[in-house]
C-alpha cells in the first residue's frame, strides 16, 4: 500500500459543470453554429499571416524562451542572424510569392521590429496590407503572473509603435509564441484591439469574453505552421506542401455541407523565405488559389464579414 497521499484538492472538482472550466468563451461545437456564407458564393477563405519577428541576441528566456529563439551560449550569432535573414531577404521572396498568386495577407509584426526596420514598414505601408500586433519582441512573452501594469505598458508601446511606422490602427493581436497572461484579453479590449489569434481551438472566428467587452478569436492553426511542421516536427518541405494541400482539399469538401471555412497559414520569412523552401510555398499557394471556391483575404476583412453575419436583424 502506498504511504503517500495527495492533498484533498486533487479529488475536488470545483469547475465540473456544463461548458468550459473558465469564462473566456462559450462552449459550442463548430457544427452547432450557423454556417458562414462567404461573399460571391466562395467556400474557403485563405488567410495567410506573415509573422515578422525580432529575436534579441541577449535573450532572457523568462519565464520561457520563444519558439525559434537563441539556444546556444551568448552570443548565439547563428540563430540571431538566421532569424534576421527573414526580415532582410526572406520577406522579399515571400512578398513576391504572395503577389504572384494575388494573395492579400496579414502581417503580424513585433513593435521593436517596426522600430528597427522603417524601410520594410514603408514597403508594407505602401502595399496597404493589414498589420496586426505581435508583441514587442519574441523575448517579451505575455505570461501568467506577469505584473498587470508592466503588461499594459508593453501592449501600449507595441500598438503605438506599429501605428507610428505603418500608419494603421491595429485591429488584431498575436502574442509572441501564442501564449498570453490571465490579463491579456482584458488589456487588449481596453486598448481597442478587436481580435486575437492565440487560441487554436477552432477553425472559425468566435466571440471571446473579457471584462471590457468582447474580443473575437481568429483561428490561426499552429499544426499547419511552417515552423511547427518543418522545425518542430522535422518534416520535409515536400511534406509541408502536401499537408497544406491535404488541409485545403479537406476544408473545401467540408465547406460544401457545413458553411464557409478558413485555411489559415502562419508563415515565417526566416523559415519559408530560404532559397530551398520558397518553391514549396509557391506551389502550395498555387494549388490553393487554383481551386474553385477559394478566395484570399486578410484576417480583419474575414472577421468583419463574420461579424456582419452574426449581427442581429
Amino acid at each position: 500500500m502506498s504511504s503517500s497521499q495527495l492533498d484533498k484538492s486533487h479529488l475536488e472538482y470545483p469547475q465540473r459543470r456544463h461548458g468550459m472550466d473558465h469564462n473566456w468563451y462559450d462552449w459550442q461545437m463548430l457544427s452547432q453554429r450557423n454556417p458562414v456564407h462567404w461573399p460571391d458564393g466562395k467556400k474557403l477563405a485563405l488567410w495567410v499571416n506573415v509573422s515578422l519577428q525580432f529575436f534579441p541576441l541577449n535573450q532572457q528566456g523568462k519565464p520561457f524562451p520563444p519558439p525559434g529563439g537563441m539556444t546556444m551560449p551568448y552570443p548565439d550569432l547563428r540563430h540571431f542572424s538566421l532569424r534576421d535573414y527573414g526580415n532582410r531577404v526572406g520577406i522579399y521572396r515571400i512578398l513576391k510569392a504572395l503577389d504572384q498568386h494575388q494573395i492579400r495577407a496579414t502581417f503580424a509584426i513585433n513593435g521593436e521590429l517596426a522600430e528597427r526596420s522603417p524601410y520594410l514598414m514603408e514597403v508594407l505601408r505602401s502595399r496597404g496590407d493589414e498589420i496586426i500586433a505581435h508583441g514587442w519582441n519574441m523575448d517579451r512573452p505575455h505570461y501568467g503572473g506577469q505584473p498587470l501594469e508592466a503588461e499594459r505598458e508593453q501592449i501600449r508601446a507595441t500598438l503605438a509603435t506599429l501605428q507610428k511606422y505603418t500608419g494603421q490602427t491595429v485591429r488584431g493581436w498575436l502574442s509572441p509564441g501564442k501564449v498570453h497572461s490571465e490579463n491579456t484579453p482584458n488589456l487588449l479590449a481596453d486598448e481597442g484591439v478587436e481580435y486575437l489569434c492565440d487560441w487554436v481551438n477552432d477553425d472559425m472566428p468566435y466571440p471571446f469574453h473579457t471584462d471590457n467587452g468582447n474580443l473575437w478569436a481568429m483561428p490561426l492553426s499552429t499544426e499547419l505552421e511552417d515552423q511547427f511542421i518543418l522545425r518542430n516536427n522535422q518534416h520535409s518541405e515536400a511534406s509541408y506542401q502536401e499537408q497544406i494541400e491535404d488541409a485545403c482539399r479537406f476544408l473545401l469538401t467540408e465547406a460544401e455541407h457545413s458553411g464557409g471555412r478558413i485555411l489559415a497559414l502562419n508563415i515565417h520569412p526566416w523559415m519559408l523565405g530560404q532559397p530551398h523552401r520558397i518553391a514549396y510555398l509557391e506551389r502550395a499557394l498555387g494549388f490553393i488559389t487554383a481551386q474553385p471556391g477559394v478566395f484570399s483575404a486578410p484576417a480583419g476583412e474575414l472577421l468583419s464579414h463574420c461579424k456582419s453575419m452574426a449581427a442581429p436583424g
Binding site: 459550442q28 463548430l30 505570461y143 501564449v179 497572461s181 481551438n201
Partner: peptide, 17 residues
C-alpha cells in the same frame, strides 16, 4: 504558467471541431 494557451486550446479543438 497558467493560462497555458497553446496546450489547452489545441485539446479543446478536438472537442469543438
Amino acid at each position: 504558467p497558467s493560462p497555458a494557451v497553446p496546450g489547452y486550446s489545441i485539446r479543446d479543438y478536438g472537442n469543438r471541431v
